[in-house]
Structure formats: C-alpha cells, structure tokens
Nucleic acid binder design. Structure first.
Lengths: 208, 208
DNA sequence: TGCAAAGTTGCAGAGACTGCAAAACAATCC
DNA sequence: GGATTGTTTTGCAGTCTCTGCAACTTTGCA
C-alpha cells in the first residue's frame, strides 16, 4: 500500500498539522493570541504539546501556518519557468500561484487570521521572523536564473520584496472587506517592479 | 543643575543602555548568540536581569540595539524635508542619515555584529520582528507627505522596503570587507526606487 | 507475523519574559 | 541640609515557550 499520492502516514501528518494550525487560529481569534497557550492548542488538536513543537518551531509560526514545502515549491516553479521570462516575472508568478492556492484551500482560515491581525498587527511581522531559510532558498533560485554571483543583492532584494509585498497586502486587506488579497499582493509586487521613486497615481474609489 | 542637554539621570540611562547593548554584542560574538544568557549579559553590564528587560523588550532587540528614538527621529526628518522633495527621496535620505550617524557612533559594534551575523544570518530577520510600531509611525509620516489615504499601500511598502534594503545590505556586507555598509543601503534603496522588474546591470568588480 | 522506520509522548529542565512591590536614587522645594 | 516627590533599579515569584532525550506506539513492508 504505497499509492503514489499519499500513504496513511502522510495523510495523518497532514491532518495533524492542519488541526494544529486551525486550532491555533481559531483559539487566537476567539480569545486573543496571547491568552492562548500552546498547551490549550495541543489539547484542542488532540495531541501532546511536544507534538505541537514537532510540527511548528514556534507558536507564531503555527498562527500563520507556514508550509515548509512552500519554499521549495516556489523555488522549483521559478527554475521551471520558460527561458524568456524575466526573473522578476518568474518570481512574481510563483508567489501569486502559491497565494492563490493557499487562499483556495484555506480561505476560512485567513478570515480568522484577519480577526487576529486586526487586534495585533505586529504578529504578522513576527511570523516572518523564522523564514530566513526559505528566503535563502528562493534567493538562490532567483540568482541562478538571473545568472548573478552570490554577492549580488538583487536576488535577496527581490525575494524580500515578495514577503514584504505579502505582508503589506495582508495589512491593507485587514482594513476592509472590499478587496481580494490576491489582487493586493499582485498590486504590491507590481509597485516593486516599477519602482517606488514616484508615488503611484491614485486608484479609483469603489473598485470596478 | 538642569542643563539643557542632559541630566545626570539621562546620562546614566544612556550609559546603561549602551553597556547592555555592548555586552550583548560582545558576548554573542565571543561565544555564540545562544550560548549567552540574559543573566550573563546583565552581569557583564553590572545591572540586574530585570533592568535588562526595562531597556530591551527581548534579547534579539539588544543584539541590534534598536534605538527607540530612531523611529520618531526619522519620521520628523521626513516631515521636515522641503516641499519639492519627493516622499521617496525624503524617506531615502532620512534612512541614510540615520545609518550614517549610527555607523559613525558605533562602527566597532557593527563589526562585532557582523561576526555574529556571519554565524547566524537568521538573527537579522528576527531582530526586525518587533519594529511594527516604528514601521507604522514612518508609514504615517510618508503617507502624510504623499497625501495618501491610510488605505493606500504605498507608504507601508516604501517603509518596509527601507528595512528590507537595510537587511539585505547588511547580509551582503557580512560577506566581505570591501564595501561600505552605508553605500550598500543606498544602492539597495535605489533599486527599490527604480524598480526590480529588470535585473540591474552588473557592478564592476573591484570597485573604484 | 515480525522487523525497521517514523511518529508520538512524557518528563525534566533551561531560559526568556512579566507584574508587583520594596528599596535606592536623583531632582526639587523649603 | 532635610523633607518631598518622581524615577529607576532590583528581587522574587511565576508563567510560558521551547529543547533533548528515551520510552512507547503506529505504520510500512517482507
């Protein structure tokens, strides 16, 4: 019994991780992030505290539910893009694809996260504190594509701009309901693409 | 005895803060960041552990020595810039001014920090985890200058690009000795200014 | 069924960080 | 100088996150 897709083991792991993520977000939204202990989260997910830390390196990480495979997945997408695509475009679409997927699979969780982030905007920044490794991975992919030496700042800047775009988009998104998060990320990335030297023209009020 | 500049109290506070910052960096460089406890740092600075936490919200913060007045100072500089200066330029020069000052006053500390960051690059990202408040402050200043509503992402993006530029510049700087940190930050900011859509032309090897 | 690999758990412990109330200290007023 | 007031430092008790380790349970496979 070793189906190409998933073994029992893998399925269980995914479910445990999802349960922990969900428990964290749900409880945090319900009674405030720091009035929830890891002990309670683990209990809610029917698992020991020790197991919680086997899945997430920190409580912060569980709140955002950082998928450990997201980094590698994006890196692969970047390298797999056709040759004529610029590194920027390759990176941009890999980020957007990842986010679109995520939102399609867990929109409800993001709505709860929004509740939490509206109370504690600082958590969003903190949640990225442990992503140095992914950043490095992605920067290498971008660097490779662009044919730049490791000393060049461009890949690092581009990748960091990506997290930043996401971060700012979420912050903006938490202000009201009238915009799609995916669009905001795209918009932010475009601003980084075209440059911040000049203030962009105003967007129409009321969308459409 | 209440000289315009500084009272005895203020002077003592500054010295304690500096001592804690220095002790943190020195010990971390010497024996590795997480083989140093706050208890040891406090002892080195001749002060109680509790006092350490009166000055810094976390060990991470002490390592970078985030100056609580840096945010307000930069915000003020941004607002004080002449009218014909673009928000980007106002922000850019306020960042560079701050960094230049910092490097002039504490170059030796930064050299030690470099040691630490070469071992543990992830600490740099973590060190920014608690600067949400400053970011908000600066974003407001930029937003005000640019005459943008709070919902516009531009100010947040610009400010976040600033921390990112600094972060990447430090990472790059830690690779070798041949460049000035201030220049790297400027370079990174310029890239954000002109846009990341295209890979920038290569810099000449060997400077000049 | 039985073995090996992977995952879970409890436990003990280190260490970061907080709130509180007492003590030490500096600035100010008479 | 001495009393008064506002700040800073300190100790202490306690909570919580997070880690290493060793035992135990479950799954994958022959």
């Amino acid at each position: 019994m070793n189906q190409p897709g998933e073994s029992l083991r893998d399925r269980k792991k995914r479910r445990t991780r999802a349960a922990l993520e969900r428990a964290t977000v749900r409880l945090a939204a319900e009674r405030g992030y720091d009035h929830v202990t890891v002990e309670e989260i683990a209990a809610e997910a029917d698992v020991s505290v020790r197991t919680f830390f086997n899945y997430f390196a920190s409580k912060d990480e569980a709140l955002i539910g950082a998928d450990p495979e997201a980094g590698p997945r994006m890196a692969e997408r970047i390298l797999a893009a056709p040759d004529e695509v610029t590194p920027f475009e390759a990176y941009r679409s890999s980020v957007l694809a990842e986010i679109t997927d995520e939102l399609n699979n867990a929109r409800d969780l993001w709505l709860l996260r929004k509740e939490v982030l509206m109370q504690r905007p600082d958590l969003l920044l903190r949640a990225f504190a442990n992503s140095a490794e992914s950043e490095q991975l992605l920067a290498n992919a971008v660097g490779q594509r662009a044919g730049l030496p490791e000393s060049d700042m461009y890949p690092r800047l581009l990748v960091a701009a990506g997290s930043t775009a996401f971060r700012c988009a979420v912050t903006r998104w938490a202000l009201d309901d009238n915009v799609a998060l995916g669009d905001l990320v795209g918009e932010a990335l475009d601003l980084f693409g075209t440059g911040l030297a000049h203030v962009p023209p105003h967007h129409r009020e009321g969308g459409s």
